[in-house]
Amino acid sequence: MDDLASFLRTRRSRVDPAAVGIPTDRRRRVEGLRREEVAHLSGVSVDYYVRLEQGRATQPSDQVLDALARVLGLDETERGHLRRLACQRRRPTKAPGGRVRPELLRLLGLVVGAPAMIMDHRLNVLAGNHLAELLYGRPLPGPAPGLNTARHIFLEEAERGLYGDWENCTLDVVGHLRLAAGQYPDDPKLASLIGELAMGSERFRRLWARADVRARTHGRKAYQHPLVGLLEMHQENFTLPDESGMELVVLSAAPGSPAEDGLRLLAGLGADSSAAHAAVNAQAHE
């Protein structure tokens, strides 16, 4: 799904030659650095670097990877991704399963006043609290196949308006899936999802070709909810232990903010709806 060769090529094309001390003129037609320039700056032979980009060289040393990361100007997330890609042939990684422990479900239920979800590395929502269900307007995880936020963002056109910053959300999703593909290169379900997104979305295809990676940690998240309007919240991603590949995602609103009022209103609407359904069911069984 992802490979060292393509990642090196895309990173090389983004380096400004002037930033690494290479003079340029109008006759230069290469975007970014040339292969021989990367090799020279990294201290490796041109032949070896060419073989890396052609996928013919395997198991580069840590020293070579560090040198390449420095020359290509990789950040910490990209450095980790580079190492995982280089180690794929050494240590195949089995994709984790999707079973949520009962203790995690109990913990999820204790989160009140904020939408919270448990997600896997494929961006499947495995469980969600009541506010998360109200935010997305559906039970979580719901009937098969359930909610996958990548499909939701790229393929469900009717749902696109839910995301207050849709374009940035698409960058986050593709960046995360790139990281997941590097970590779990032999995951057939992940490969199938990526193929489905590529077939169904031109934007996904364009972003995937860029080979950008993004770590999901924290940041602003905006939703344009059809019932309560704009909800500007802060998202925190907590990686769960035991290498499950799962994350606890919590969306919180600042105290006294319009988003806090909106979440309170949304919870109230949900409570009213639940009470109405309970009354109807009670009458039906009298």
Score class of each variant (00 low, 15 high):
residue 77 T to K: 01
residue 76 E to V: 04
residue 20 V to L: 06
residue 36 E to Q: 08
residue 72 L to R: 09
residue 59 Q to M: 06
residue 66 D to R: 15
residue 10 T to G: 01
residue 52 L to A: 04
residue 33 L to F: 10
residue 51 R to G: 04
residue 74 L to I: 01
residue 64 V to K: 06
residue 21 G to S: 09
residue 37 E to R: 08
residue 40 H to Q: 11
residue 48 Y to G: 03
residue 23 P to N: 09
residue 7 F to M: 01
residue 15 V to P: 01
residue 43 G to Y: 11
residue 34 R to Q: 07
residue 11 R to T: 10
residue 33 L to E: 06
residue 57 A to E: 15
residue 66 D to Q: 10
residue 8 L to W: 12
residue 20 V to T: 14
residue 23 P to H: 12
residue 9 R to M: 00
residue 15 V to Y: 15
residue 27 R to G: 10
residue 66 D to W: 07
residue 36 E to K: 05
residue 71 V to D: 07
residue 71 V to L: 02
residue 24 T to E: 12
residue 39 A to W: 10
residue 47 D to R: 14
residue 40 H to R: 12
residue 38 V to R: 09
residue 21 G to Y: 14
residue 62 D to F: 02
residue 17 P to K: 15
residue 29 R to P: 05
residue 42 S to P: 00
residue 30 V to Q: 07
residue 21 G to L: 03
residue 64 V to S: 06
residue 63 Q to F: 07
residue 74 L to H: 05
residue 17 P to N: 14
residue 46 V to E: 00
residue 34 R to H: 10
residue 52 L to V: 00
residue 26 R to P: 01
residue 12 R to K: 08
residue 36 E to V: 02
residue 23 P to E: 14
residue 75 D to L: 00
residue 57 A to T: 11
residue 8 L to Y: 10
residue 75 D to W: 01
residue 50 V to E: 00
residue 56 R to E: 03
residue 73 G to M: 01
residue 12 R to G: 02
residue 75 D to Y: 03
residue 71 V to S: 04
residue 75 D to S: 04
residue 41 L to N: 03
residue 57 A to Q: 15
residue 33 L to I: 08
residue 33 L to R: 09
residue 15 V to I: 15
residue 9 R to I: 01
residue 51 R to I: 04
residue 17 P to V: 03
residue 40 H to Y: 09
residue 76 E to Q: 13
residue 39 A to C: 06
residue 23 P to L: 05
residue 27 R to P: 03
residue 40 H to T: 08
residue 53 E to G: 05
residue 55 G to S: 10
residue 66 D to N: 09
residue 76 E to S: 14
residue 31 E to C: 02
residue 41 L to R: 11
residue 7 F to D: 02
residue 32 G to Q: 06
residue 67 A to D: 06
residue 50 V to W: 09
residue 77 T to F: 00
residue 48 Y to H: 15
residue 37 E to P: 02
residue 35 R to C: 07
residue 20 V to E: 08
residue 80 G to N: 11
residue 25 D to C: 05
residue 39 A to Y: 13
residue 78 E to G: 04
residue 58 T to A: 10
residue 37 E to D: 07
residue 20 V to F: 13
residue 27 R to A: 13
residue 47 D to P: 00
residue 47 D to W: 12
residue 7 F to L: 02
residue 69 A to E: 04
residue 41 L to E: 03
residue 15 V to N: 13
residue 22 I to K: 12
residue 45 S to Y: 11
residue 12 R to L: 01
residue 49 Y to D: 00
residue 59 Q to T: 11
residue 17 P to F: 14
residue 39 A to H: 12
residue 20 V to K: 11
residue 80 G to P: 02
residue 17 P to L: 08
residue 28 R to P: 02
residue 79 R to F: 08
residue 70 R to N: 07
residue 56 R to M: 01
residue 49 Y to C: 00
residue 57 A to L: 04
residue 22 I to S: 08
residue 50 V to T: 15
residue 41 L to A: 03
residue 14 R to M: 10
residue 56 R to K: 13
residue 41 L to K: 07
residue 30 V to H: 07
residue 35 R to W: 13
residue 26 R to K: 12
residue 42 S to H: 02
residue 15 V to S: 11
residue 76 E to G: 02
residue 16 D to K: 12
residue 35 R to H: 11
residue 14 R to W: 13
residue 22 I to N: 11
residue 26 R to L: 13
residue 16 D to M: 09
residue 61 S to A: 07
residue 23 P to T: 13
residue 79 R to A: 06
residue 68 L to K: 10
